[in-house]
């Protein structure tokens, strides 16, 4: 399935819903969208991977890039993921220790200090 990207705003947070396959071919589009959001002033970003059915190392690289960019800008970055195959990918790569991972968008926003003010 092709990559799909949809953005919505929840209080202080920008939620990017990602669907389909994130791989070496489609990851540049995800990177572009994240950069657009961050350059456009988004500081608290939640990426919802709920409808992602494939994620590879290039996709993971893009997500780490966004995390670092937002942290250095004083912002926050979290992922929403509750599918075991994807969670296994995060565990195997040790990225589960790098990203805040939450089962739902509400949980991700609730866990972020910026969410409490929203």
């Amino acid at each position: 399935m092709e990559l799909s990207l949809a953005t919505r705003t929840v209080g202080e947070h920008t939620v990017l819903e990602v669907g389909g396959e994130v791989d070496v071919y489609t990851a540049p589009r995800l990177r572009e969208r994240l950069l657009e959001l961050i350059d456009g002033g988004a500081r608290h970003v939640v990426v919802d991977l709920g409808r992602v059915d494939f994620l590879d190392s290039t996709g993971l690289g893009v997500l780490v890039g966004a995390l670092k960019r937002l942290r250095s800008a004083g912002g926050s970055f979290a992922l929403v993921c509750d599918k075991e195959p994807l969670l296994k990918i995060f565990r195997i790569t040790a990225l589960d220790q790098v990203f805040p991972l939450h089962p739902t968008v509400d949980a991700a926003i609730g866990a972020d200090p910026a969410g409490a003010d929203a």
Binding site: T58, L60, G61, V64, G65, L67, T93, L95, V98
Partner: peptide
């Protein structure tokens, strides 16, 4: 290492792959 600011995107993707 993954969270290190100085790690390039290429090195990160290669390591994760």
């Amino acid at each position: 290492q993954l969270a290190n600011e100085s790690l390039t995107d290429e090195a990160l993707t290669t390591g994760v792959g």
